[in-house]
Design a protein around this nucleic acid. Sequence first.
DNA 1: CGCATAACCGACCTCTTCAGTAGGATTTGA
DNA 2: TCAAATCCTACTGAAGAGGTCGGTTATGCG
Lengths: 158, 158
Amino acid sequence: MLFSTKAEYGVRLMVELGRQPGSAPVSLSAVAEAERLPLSYLEHLVAKLRNAELVTSTRGAHGGYRLAQPAEAITLDQVVEALEGQIAPMECFHETPEGKVLCSHESDGDRACATKLLWTRVQGGVTKALAGTTLAELVEFSGGVASGAEKAPVGSVA
Amino acid sequence: MLFSTKAEYGVRLMVELGRQPGSAPVSLSAVAEAERLPLSYLEHLVAKLRNAELVTSTRGAHGGYRLAQPAEAITLDQVVEALEGQIAPMECFHETPEGKVLCSHESDGDRACATKLLWTRVQGGVTKALAGTTLAELVEFSGGVASGAEKAPVGSVA
DNA sequence: CGCATAACCGACCTCTTCAGTAGGATTTGA
DNA sequence: TCAAATCCTACTGAAGAGGTCGGTTATGCG
Protein backbone atom coordinates (compact mmCIF):
# COMPACT_ATOMS: atom_id res chain seq x y z
CA MET A 1 0.00 0.00 0.00
CA LEU A 2 1.38 3.35 -0.99
CA PHE A 3 -0.52 5.34 1.62
CA SER A 4 -2.07 4.54 4.96
CA THR A 5 -5.56 5.32 6.14
CA LYS A 6 -4.21 8.57 7.54
CA ALA A 7 -4.31 9.94 4.02
CA GLU A 8 -7.63 8.28 3.28
CA TYR A 9 -9.37 9.57 6.38
CA GLY A 10 -7.73 12.96 6.21
CA VAL A 11 -8.75 13.52 2.61
CA ARG A 12 -12.30 12.49 3.39
CA LEU A 13 -12.30 14.92 6.26
CA MET A 14 -11.17 17.69 3.96
CA VAL A 15 -13.79 16.79 1.39
CA GLU A 16 -16.44 16.87 4.07
CA LEU A 17 -15.35 20.36 5.05
CA GLY A 18 -15.33 21.35 1.40
CA ARG A 19 -18.91 20.17 1.03
CA GLN A 20 -20.16 22.71 3.52
CA PRO A 21 -21.92 25.54 1.78
CA GLY A 22 -21.77 28.30 4.36
CA SER A 23 -18.87 29.48 6.42
CA ALA A 24 -20.08 27.95 9.66
CA PRO A 25 -17.52 25.64 11.20
CA VAL A 26 -18.18 21.91 11.19
CA SER A 27 -17.58 19.89 14.30
CA LEU A 28 -15.37 16.86 14.12
CA SER A 29 -18.08 14.67 15.56
CA ALA A 30 -20.30 15.61 12.65
CA VAL A 31 -17.59 14.58 10.21
CA ALA A 32 -16.94 11.39 12.13
CA GLU A 33 -20.58 10.47 11.96
CA ALA A 34 -20.98 11.33 8.30
CA GLU A 35 -17.92 9.35 7.28
CA ARG A 36 -18.29 6.70 9.97
CA LEU A 37 -14.79 7.20 11.25
CA PRO A 38 -13.55 7.14 14.84
CA LEU A 39 -13.71 10.62 16.32
CA SER A 40 -10.67 10.38 18.52
CA TYR A 41 -8.54 9.24 15.64
CA LEU A 42 -9.75 12.10 13.49
CA GLU A 43 -8.58 14.45 16.21
CA HIS A 44 -5.01 13.39 15.58
CA LEU A 45 -5.36 13.80 11.86
CA VAL A 46 -7.01 17.18 11.96
CA ALA A 47 -4.21 18.38 14.21
CA LYS A 48 -1.78 17.70 11.38
CA LEU A 49 -3.99 19.55 8.95
CA ARG A 50 -4.18 22.49 11.31
CA ASN A 51 -0.41 22.57 11.74
CA ALA A 52 -0.11 22.65 7.97
CA GLU A 53 -2.58 25.55 7.96
CA LEU A 54 -5.00 23.76 5.72
CA VAL A 55 -7.87 24.13 8.17
CA THR A 56 -8.70 26.63 10.87
CA SER A 57 -10.46 25.86 14.09
CA THR A 58 -12.78 27.67 16.45
CA ARG A 59 -13.07 26.33 19.95
CA GLY A 60 -15.97 26.13 22.31
CA ALA A 61 -19.60 25.39 21.75
CA HIS A 62 -20.69 25.52 18.11
CA GLY A 63 -17.06 25.53 17.17
CA GLY A 64 -15.41 23.28 14.66
CA TYR A 65 -13.24 23.34 11.61
CA ARG A 66 -13.22 25.19 8.32
CA LEU A 67 -11.03 25.12 5.26
CA ALA A 68 -8.33 27.73 5.54
CA GLN A 69 -8.63 28.45 1.84
CA PRO A 70 -11.27 27.89 -0.83
CA ALA A 71 -11.33 24.29 -2.02
CA GLU A 72 -10.16 25.39 -5.47
CA ALA A 73 -6.90 26.62 -3.99
CA ILE A 74 -6.07 23.46 -2.06
CA THR A 75 -4.15 20.81 -3.95
CA LEU A 76 -4.02 17.28 -2.69
CA ASP A 77 -0.26 17.11 -2.45
CA GLN A 78 -0.47 19.61 0.40
CA VAL A 79 -3.10 17.52 2.13
CA VAL A 80 -1.41 14.17 1.73
CA GLU A 81 1.97 15.51 2.66
CA ALA A 82 0.57 17.06 5.82
CA LEU A 83 -0.89 13.72 6.80
CA GLU A 84 1.75 11.26 5.69
CA GLY A 85 4.88 13.34 5.87
CA GLN A 86 7.17 14.07 2.96
CA ILE A 87 6.26 12.02 -0.04
CA ALA A 88 9.27 10.11 -1.25
CA PRO A 89 9.24 6.71 -2.91
CA MET A 90 12.12 5.44 -0.83
CA GLU A 91 13.89 6.03 2.44
CA CYS A 92 17.12 7.13 0.81
CA PHE A 93 15.34 9.68 -1.31
CA HIS A 94 15.26 13.31 -0.24
CA GLU A 95 14.41 16.50 -1.98
CA THR A 96 16.18 19.69 -1.05
CA PRO A 97 14.30 23.00 -0.94
CA GLU A 98 15.77 23.82 -4.35
CA GLY A 99 14.22 20.70 -5.79
CA LYS A 100 17.41 18.77 -6.13
CA VAL A 101 17.17 15.08 -5.51
CA LEU A 102 19.53 13.49 -3.05
CA CYS A 103 20.13 9.83 -2.57
CA SER A 104 21.95 8.60 0.48
CA HIS A 105 23.73 5.87 -1.46
CA GLU A 106 24.98 8.32 -4.04
CA SER A 107 28.56 8.19 -2.95
CA ASP A 108 28.56 4.71 -1.63
CA GLY A 109 30.05 2.98 -4.57
CA ASP A 110 31.86 3.35 -7.79
CA ARG A 111 28.87 4.08 -9.97
CA ALA A 112 25.61 5.99 -9.97
CA CYS A 113 22.79 4.82 -7.78
CA ALA A 114 21.00 2.34 -9.99
CA THR A 115 17.55 3.02 -8.64
CA LYS A 116 17.63 6.79 -8.73
CA LEU A 117 16.23 6.98 -12.24
CA LEU A 118 13.32 4.78 -11.29
CA TRP A 119 12.37 6.53 -8.07
CA THR A 120 12.65 9.90 -9.72
CA ARG A 121 10.07 8.83 -12.28
CA VAL A 122 7.76 7.38 -9.66
CA GLN A 123 8.10 10.48 -7.55
CA GLY A 124 7.20 12.57 -10.57
CA GLY A 125 4.15 10.48 -11.33
CA VAL A 126 2.78 10.68 -7.83
CA THR A 127 3.51 14.34 -7.36
CA LYS A 128 1.90 15.21 -10.65
CA ALA A 129 -1.22 13.26 -9.76
CA LEU A 130 -1.51 14.82 -6.33
CA ALA A 131 -0.59 18.36 -7.24
CA GLY A 132 -2.85 18.21 -10.27
CA THR A 133 -5.91 17.46 -8.21
CA THR A 134 -7.72 20.13 -6.23
CA LEU A 135 -9.98 19.59 -3.28
CA ALA A 136 -12.74 21.23 -5.27
CA GLU A 137 -12.55 18.43 -7.82
CA LEU A 138 -13.01 15.80 -5.16
CA VAL A 139 -15.89 17.71 -3.61
CA GLU A 140 -17.51 17.89 -7.01
CA PHE A 141 -16.83 14.22 -7.68
CA SER A 142 -18.35 13.19 -4.39
CA GLY A 143 -21.62 14.86 -5.14
CA GLY A 144 -20.81 18.53 -4.96
CA VAL A 145 -21.44 21.08 -2.27
CA ALA A 146 -24.42 20.26 -0.08
CA SER A 147 -27.19 22.63 -1.10
CA GLY A 148 -27.52 23.86 2.43
CA ALA A 149 -31.27 24.16 2.15
CA GLU A 150 -32.48 20.58 1.80
CA LYS A 151 -32.79 18.59 4.95
CA ALA A 152 -29.76 19.54 7.01
CA PRO A 153 -26.00 19.45 6.73
CA VAL A 154 -23.98 16.44 7.73
CA GLY A 155 -24.21 17.10 11.41
CA SER A 156 -27.90 16.62 11.99
CA VAL A 157 -28.10 14.71 15.23
CA ALA A 158 -30.18 11.58 15.12
CA MET B 1 7.71 6.24 2.20
CA LEU B 2 5.91 4.75 -0.75
CA PHE B 3 8.07 1.64 -0.93
CA SER B 4 10.19 -0.26 1.53
CA THR B 5 13.74 -1.38 1.12
CA LYS B 6 12.42 -4.63 -0.28
CA ALA B 7 11.84 -2.82 -3.56
CA GLU B 8 15.10 -0.94 -3.31
CA TYR B 9 17.23 -4.00 -2.62
CA GLY B 10 15.34 -6.16 -5.05
CA VAL B 11 15.70 -3.71 -7.90
CA ARG B 12 19.40 -3.36 -7.21
CA LEU B 13 19.69 -7.10 -7.25
CA MET B 14 17.99 -7.24 -10.61
CA VAL B 15 20.21 -4.49 -11.97
CA GLU B 16 23.24 -6.36 -10.77
CA LEU B 17 22.08 -9.44 -12.64
CA GLY B 18 21.40 -7.32 -15.68
CA ARG B 19 24.94 -5.98 -15.60
CA GLN B 20 26.38 -9.41 -16.18
CA PRO B 21 27.62 -9.79 -19.71
CA GLY B 22 27.68 -13.56 -20.15
CA SER B 23 25.07 -16.07 -19.29
CA ALA B 24 26.89 -17.48 -16.30
CA PRO B 25 24.80 -17.36 -13.13
CA VAL B 26 25.74 -14.90 -10.42
CA SER B 27 25.80 -16.03 -6.83
CA LEU B 28 23.84 -14.09 -4.28
CA SER B 29 26.90 -13.56 -2.15
CA ALA B 30 28.55 -11.79 -5.06
CA VAL B 31 25.57 -9.48 -5.37
CA ALA B 32 25.47 -8.94 -1.63
CA GLU B 33 29.08 -7.93 -1.62
CA ALA B 34 28.81 -5.67 -4.65
CA GLU B 35 25.80 -3.85 -3.29
CA ARG B 36 26.80 -4.17 0.36
CA LEU B 37 23.53 -5.74 1.35
CA PRO B 38 22.91 -8.54 3.86
CA LEU B 39 23.04 -11.88 2.11
CA SER B 40 20.42 -13.64 4.19
CA TYR B 41 17.96 -10.87 3.59
CA LEU B 42 18.56 -10.98 -0.14
CA GLU B 43 17.68 -14.66 -0.03
CA HIS B 44 14.15 -13.74 0.96
CA LEU B 45 13.85 -11.18 -1.76
CA VAL B 46 15.24 -13.32 -4.52
CA ALA B 47 12.75 -16.01 -3.58
CA LYS B 48 9.95 -13.62 -4.44
CA LEU B 49 11.58 -12.79 -7.73
CA ARG B 50 11.94 -16.44 -8.52
CA ASN B 51 8.30 -17.12 -7.69
CA ALA B 52 7.38 -14.35 -10.08
CA GLU B 53 9.59 -16.00 -12.69
CA LEU B 54 11.74 -12.96 -13.13
CA VAL B 55 14.93 -14.83 -12.33
CA THR B 56 16.00 -18.44 -12.68
CA SER B 57 18.31 -20.25 -10.34
CA THR B 58 20.83 -23.04 -10.61
CA ARG B 59 21.75 -24.81 -7.44
CA GLY B 60 25.00 -26.27 -6.26
CA ALA B 61 28.55 -25.10 -6.60
CA HIS B 62 29.03 -22.33 -9.17
CA GLY B 63 25.31 -21.89 -9.20
CA GLY B 64 23.48 -18.64 -8.84
CA TYR B 65 20.83 -16.52 -10.46
CA ARG B 66 20.15 -15.23 -13.93
CA LEU B 67 17.49 -13.00 -15.45
CA ALA B 68 14.69 -15.12 -16.80
CA GLN B 69 14.34 -12.76 -19.75
CA PRO B 70 16.53 -10.14 -21.42
CA ALA B 71 16.66 -6.92 -19.44
CA GLU B 72 14.86 -5.08 -22.23
CA ALA B 73 11.81 -7.25 -21.70
CA ILE B 74 11.54 -6.75 -17.96
CA THR B 75 9.55 -3.76 -16.82
CA LEU B 76 9.89 -2.47 -13.33
CA ASP B 77 6.25 -2.83 -12.43
CA GLN B 78 6.72 -6.59 -12.57
CA VAL B 79 9.75 -6.36 -10.33
CA VAL B 80 8.30 -4.01 -7.76
CA GLU B 81 5.01 -5.86 -7.64
CA ALA B 82 6.79 -9.16 -7.06
CA LEU B 83 8.62 -7.64 -4.13
CA GLU B 84 6.03 -5.42 -2.53
CA GLY B 85 2.83 -7.13 -3.52
CA GLN B 86 0.05 -5.56 -5.51
CA ILE B 87 0.59 -1.88 -5.98
CA ALA B 88 -2.41 0.05 -4.81
CA PRO B 89 -2.40 3.50 -3.28
CA MET B 90 -4.80 2.50 -0.54
CA GLU B 91 -6.07 -0.48 1.35
CA CYS B 92 -9.60 -0.19 0.02
CA PHE B 93 -8.38 -0.10 -3.54
CA HIS B 94 -8.40 -3.24 -5.63
CA GLU B 95 -8.12 -3.92 -9.29
CA THR B 96 -9.96 -6.82 -10.83
CA PRO B 97 -8.38 -8.91 -13.57
CA GLU B 98 -10.41 -6.96 -16.09
CA GLY B 99 -8.86 -3.74 -14.89
CA LYS B 100 -11.91 -2.44 -13.12
CA VAL B 101 -11.28 -0.52 -9.96
CA LEU B 102 -13.08 -1.53 -6.84
CA CYS B 103 -13.32 0.41 -3.64
CA SER B 104 -14.51 -1.25 -0.49
CA HIS B 105 -16.36 1.85 0.66
CA GLU B 106 -18.19 2.16 -2.61
CA SER B 107 -21.55 1.19 -1.24
CA ASP B 108 -21.04 2.40 2.24
CA GLY B 109 -22.89 5.62 1.99
CA ASP B 110 -25.21 7.69 0.00
CA ARG B 111 -22.67 9.07 -2.43
CA ALA B 112 -19.60 8.12 -4.43
CA CYS B 113 -16.38 7.40 -2.65
CA ALA B 114 -14.77 10.82 -2.44
CA THR B 115 -11.23 9.62 -2.69
CA LYS B 116 -11.60 7.26 -5.61
CA LEU B 117 -10.81 9.90 -8.18
CA LEU B 118 -7.62 10.82 -6.38
CA TRP B 119 -6.30 7.31 -5.84
CA THR B 120 -7.10 6.37 -9.40
CA ARG B 121 -4.91 9.19 -10.62
CA VAL B 122 -2.10 8.32 -8.23
CA GLN B 123 -2.31 4.69 -9.23
CA GLY B 124 -2.08 5.70 -12.85
CA GLY B 125 0.94 7.86 -12.24
CA VAL B 126 2.85 5.17 -10.41
CA THR B 127 1.93 2.39 -12.79
CA LYS B 128 2.92 4.48 -15.76
CA ALA B 129 6.28 5.29 -14.23
CA LEU B 130 7.01 1.68 -13.31
CA ALA B 131 5.69 0.02 -16.45
CA GLY B 132 7.42 2.61 -18.59
CA THR B 133 10.83 1.77 -17.22
CA THR B 134 12.73 -1.32 -18.31
CA LEU B 135 15.47 -3.03 -16.41
CA ALA B 136 17.74 -2.36 -19.36
CA GLU B 137 17.35 1.37 -18.81
CA LEU B 138 18.44 1.06 -15.21
CA VAL B 139 21.38 -1.10 -16.16
CA GLU B 140 22.41 1.49 -18.69
CA PHE B 141 21.91 4.31 -16.20
CA SER B 142 24.03 2.58 -13.60
CA GLY B 143 26.99 2.34 -15.91
CA GLY B 144 25.93 -0.24 -18.44
CA VAL B 145 26.80 -3.88 -18.78
CA ALA B 146 30.15 -4.78 -17.26
CA SER B 147 32.53 -5.30 -20.15
CA GLY B 148 33.37 -8.74 -18.86
CA ALA B 149 37.01 -8.36 -19.78
CA GLU B 150 38.32 -5.59 -17.59
CA LYS B 151 39.25 -6.54 -14.09
CA ALA B 152 36.60 -9.02 -13.03
CA PRO B 153 32.86 -9.13 -12.58
CA VAL B 154 31.17 -8.18 -9.35
CA GLY B 155 32.05 -11.33 -7.55
CA SER B 156 35.81 -11.10 -7.44
CA VAL B 157 36.71 -12.17 -3.96
CA ALA B 158 38.91 -9.74 -2.09
C1' DC C 1 -23.22 31.36 36.86
C1' DG C 2 -23.16 26.75 35.13
C1' DC C 3 -23.47 23.48 31.83
C1' DA C 4 -23.07 21.30 27.45
C1' DT C 5 -20.29 21.39 23.52
C1' DA C 6 -16.53 21.63 21.39
C1' DA C 7 -11.27 21.82 20.36
C1' DC C 8 -6.87 20.39 22.30
C1' DC C 9 -3.25 17.33 24.26
C1' DG C 10 -0.56 13.33 25.64
C1' DA C 11 -0.17 8.72 27.24
C1' DC C 12 -1.12 4.24 26.25
C1' DC C 13 -2.20 -0.21 23.75
C1' DT C 14 -2.48 -3.96 20.36
C1' DC C 15 -1.30 -5.70 16.02
C1' DT C 16 1.27 -6.00 11.86
C1' DT C 17 5.15 -5.20 9.03
C1' DC C 18 10.05 -4.28 8.31
C1' DA C 19 14.60 -5.64 8.25
C1' DG C 20 17.45 -8.82 9.49
C1' DT C 21 19.43 -13.17 11.79
C1' DA C 22 20.02 -18.09 12.51
C1' DG C 23 20.19 -22.73 11.51
C1' DG C 24 19.68 -26.10 8.93
C1' DA C 25 18.60 -29.14 4.57
C1' DT C 26 19.51 -30.04 -0.19
C1' DT C 27 21.88 -29.83 -4.58
C1' DT C 28 25.93 -29.84 -7.37
C1' DG C 29 30.74 -29.30 -9.41
C1' DA C 30 35.44 -30.49 -8.66
C1' DT D 1 33.86 -36.13 -0.04
C1' DC D 2 34.09 -31.30 0.43
C1' DA D 3 32.89 -26.68 -0.47
C1' DA D 4 29.84 -23.68 -2.58
C1' DA D 5 25.68 -22.60 -3.56
C1' DT D 6 20.38 -22.48 -3.36
C1' DC D 7 16.47 -23.30 -0.50
C1' DC D 8 13.41 -23.22 3.60
C1' DT D 9 11.49 -22.20 8.17
C1' DA D 10 11.50 -19.99 12.37
C1' DC D 11 12.60 -16.31 15.15
C1' DT D 12 13.47 -11.39 16.86
C1' DG D 13 13.78 -6.38 17.86
C1' DA D 14 12.12 -2.07 16.47
C1' DA D 15 8.91 0.83 14.41
C1' DG D 16 4.61 2.28 12.66
C1' DA D 17 -0.47 1.77 12.02
C1' DG D 18 -4.75 2.45 13.97
C1' DG D 19 -6.90 3.33 17.54
C1' DT D 20 -8.57 4.37 22.70
C1' DC D 21 -8.82 6.99 26.99
C1' DG D 22 -8.72 10.58 30.21
C1' DG D 23 -8.24 14.96 31.03
C1' DT D 24 -7.75 20.27 30.12
C1' DT D 25 -9.20 24.48 28.11
C1' DA D 26 -12.28 27.53 25.63
C1' DT D 27 -16.95 29.26 24.54
C1' DG D 28 -21.87 30.02 23.48
C1' DC D 29 -26.34 29.87 25.79
C1' DG D 30 -30.19 29.53 29.07
